[in-house]
Computed example of a mutant assay.
Amino acid sequence: MRVALVTESFPPDLNGVAHSVLRTAEHLVRRGHEPLVITPAPAQPPSAPDPCPVIRVPAIPLPGYPQVRVALPSRRLEQLIAGHRPDIVHLASPFVLGARGMAAAERLGVPAVAVYQTDIAGYARAYRAGSGLGEAAAWRRLRSVHCAAARTLAPSTPAMQDLTAHGIPRVHLWQRGVDAVRFDPRRRDPALRRSLAPEGEVLVGYVGRLAPEKRVDLLSETAQLPGVRVVVVGDGPSEPTLRQQLPGALFLGRRTGAELAAIYASLDVFAHTGPMETFCQTIQEAMASGVPVVGPAVGGPLDLIGHRRTGLLFPPRDAGALAAAVRTLAADAGLRAAYGAAGRAEVRHRSWESVGDQLLGHYAEILGRRTASPALPQAA
């Protein structure tokens, strides 16, 4: 198949959308298909080779959040899609560039699959201080795109329910894979642990963007627990404020590759704070690393965390409940080990290859083709 991947983000960006599209493109190439990626141009050129042809269209930074780039309007998008002669258009987290990609696919008569990955409406609600105006507009935009798609793929059952409740049809489940070879308990590094916790503290880590919607400030009470050291990995516009709110926490900045894998595996507890996650890849990476997880009982984490089996869920936006969950795990090394082992066992077989084949199954069903891909996912 020839596939046009229109995405709001792609490496060198570091986020869930960019990573999943990269993995999708790699899988399509491995399976003998011909993907083309169309994405906003990053602020800095990519440092690694692309797995397939990638066209980066002009973009500007989002005001107040320069790490996010927004594509500028252009008639070139339809020409790029038409020039690739795709069998299907894959829209990753469509909102700005993806909405234009959906319109282009309709004009060209090419079926499109829309992959829901970002709670845009939730972000609008948070940034508009609960006025509801931004949220309502965001849902109108999302419906206009997803209702036109042949199929919408959601990463978790709460995301599927949210989409269906807002009138979006043809919603199917498509989860995310994890690299259980890179993220592995054997990456635990005693020397790294000594450098991060010289007094033998329990290491509690967060990995992700440092932005208001991630609510990393909820770790403030956790950072004050005796014998606990909070480690924050990532960057973003909230970093200066968070450094003030989390005195004593270690801010390691952006980390990738083997270095990130070693940090994950060297943690004692992984804590995620964001209440607007449609999936939450960092929780899955921590589980693959054999680390017990603490996360909010909302959205994607509900699918990922087995409460009192692989980790602990806490009421979203409740800093005290988060600290209490961490305190429970910090006090019991045996419980941490049991949860970590159970989490690793649960996700170790969720390879990107298997979820990539599921995606090919969705493509084939949309196009009415036979496929040899195993275990096609079921519709909602």
Rank of each mutant, 00 (worst) to 15 (best):
V3N: 00
V3H: 03
A4L: 01
S9N: 01
V17G: 00
L28M: 06
P35Y: 07
L36I: 09
A41W: 00
P46W: 07
P46N: 03
S47I: 10
A48H: 12
R75V: 08
I81K: 01
S93E: 00
L97R: 09
G98D: 12
A105L: 04
E106P: 03
E106Q: 14
R107M: 11
P111Y: 03
V113A: 05
A114Y: 13
A114P: 15
Y116E: 13
Q117I: 04
T118C: 01
G122D: 07
A126I: 11
S131V: 02
A138L: 12
W139R: 07
R143M: 09
S144T: 15
S144P: 12
H146I: 15
T152L: 04
P155L: 10
A159H: 14
D162K: 13
G167I: 13
I168G: 13
P169W: 00
R170I: 01
R170Y: 00
L173G: 08
V181P: 00
F183M: 10
R193T: 06
R193L: 06
A197E: 03
L203E: 02
G205M: 14
G205V: 05
L210P: 02
A211M: 08
E213I: 08
D217C: 11
L218Q: 08
L219K: 02
L219N: 00
S220H: 15
L225M: 02
G227P: 08
G227W: 03
R229W: 06
E259T: 06
I263Y: 04
P275C: 10
M276Q: 14
F279E: 05
E285V: 05
V294I: 15
G295V: 12
V298K: 13
R309M: 07
P315Y: 09
L322K: 03
A324Y: 04
A330F: 05
A331M: 05
R336L: 01
A338Y: 00
Y339H: 13
A342C: 09
G343V: 00
A345H: 14
E346R: 14
H349T: 15
H349M: 15
S354K: 14
G368I: 00
R370D: 00
Q378A: 14
